[in-house]
Design a protein around this nucleic acid. Structure first.
Lengths: 176, 176
DNA sequence: GTCTATAAAGCGATAGAC
DNA sequence: GTCTATCGCTTTATAGAC
């Protein structure tokens, strides 16, 4: 349910995700949707954002923060990122929200997602041997680089742009 | 006229830019708008994209391709980019379109913008002394980095994220 | 060239039958 | 819990006065 919902928001943005598109994607009528989400579209988006946050917390942020081998945690991040974004065929819903007018309504979720990603990555980079300031800079470069690569890959309609850029970011992070 | 129109599309995306918002931003009634743009919203977006393309062609792409001093051309690109995106307070309209469903309708403009940017930058980097393959990779990193920095800056509601990242990209390009 | 009025369709959301 | 019907509003777009 939430994954299908997420796909609609991802593809059409918050404004563009009409209830007609949502009913088509989920197979549920409006009545059912409002039974499940009394708060309407805003609640749907909030729950989708929360689910995404949980996924990244489990698959990306926690490994970055908690891996005994910091470099392995970073490797897991790149692997999970590649899977999640379907090697560049899928766009980042939080990034889409961040660029649009929806950012203000979902400011906490949008802000938290990127901030915790950057912070967890900086912690791993520091434990992997980078100086504190350098790790902070590099973490910003990498998270920005991933988001930018998604923009470019979709603009060019060529997922390879994402794969290539991700591979170079991994090298800069010290990955093999 | 086109700049005000562009600001609405930038802030609200193609889907979110309603004629009500557009009339408010331009001060023109619907009648006047359809007199100027018989093709409606689609034509407005197309002309805005064309104007943006011209601006970047003149201020960014041409200097990158034609500067006798390649490093000076790259410096001009970073300067113009910082000005255009208001040091991170403004988002990239073409990037917004690229991420959304509007990409398909405006595929040529979206694809051309990023491709020509990357290509012009690669040419300058090569003339500045980078090996051909390295220049191509670096140009992709830099254009993606700029787009990603815009996403992060808007997500954090903090333009400094953009300025910092832009400064590091400039350093990687060999800028002082 | 700009306005107001209006059309037709789509929007988010609700009510109520089943 | 899911559906259909419908509300009230907004959407894009057009017509026609000035």
């Amino acid at each position: 349910m939430l994954p299908q919902l997420g796909e609609v928001f991802r593809t059409h943005g918050y404004e563009g995700a009409s209830l007609t598109l949502i009913t088509a994607a989920t197979g549920l009528g409006k009545g059912s949707l409002y039974h499940l989400f009394p708060g309407g579209k805003a609640q749907m988006a909030k729950e989708v954002l929360a689910e995404i946050d949980q996924w990244f917390e489990r698959e990306v942020f926690a490994p970055l923060r908690d891996s005994a081998d910091a470099q392995a945690g970073i490797g897991q991040m790149f692997k999970a990122t590649d899977v999640y974004f379907r090697s560049g065929r899928r766009v980042c819903l939080v990034g889409v929200f961040a660029l649009g007018a929806a950012r203000d309504e979902f400011a906490d979720a949008v802000h938290g997602y990127f901030d915790r990603w950057r912070e967890a990555l900086a912690s791993a980079l520091e434990r992997a041997g980078h100086a504190r300031g350098e790790a902070k800079e590099l973490s910003e470069d990498i998270v920005a680089g991933i988001q930018g690569a998604l923009v470019l890959a979709r603009a060019a309609d060529d997922p390879k742009v994402f794969s290539r850029t991700l591979a170079r970011l991994k090298r800069r992070a010290g990955g093999r």
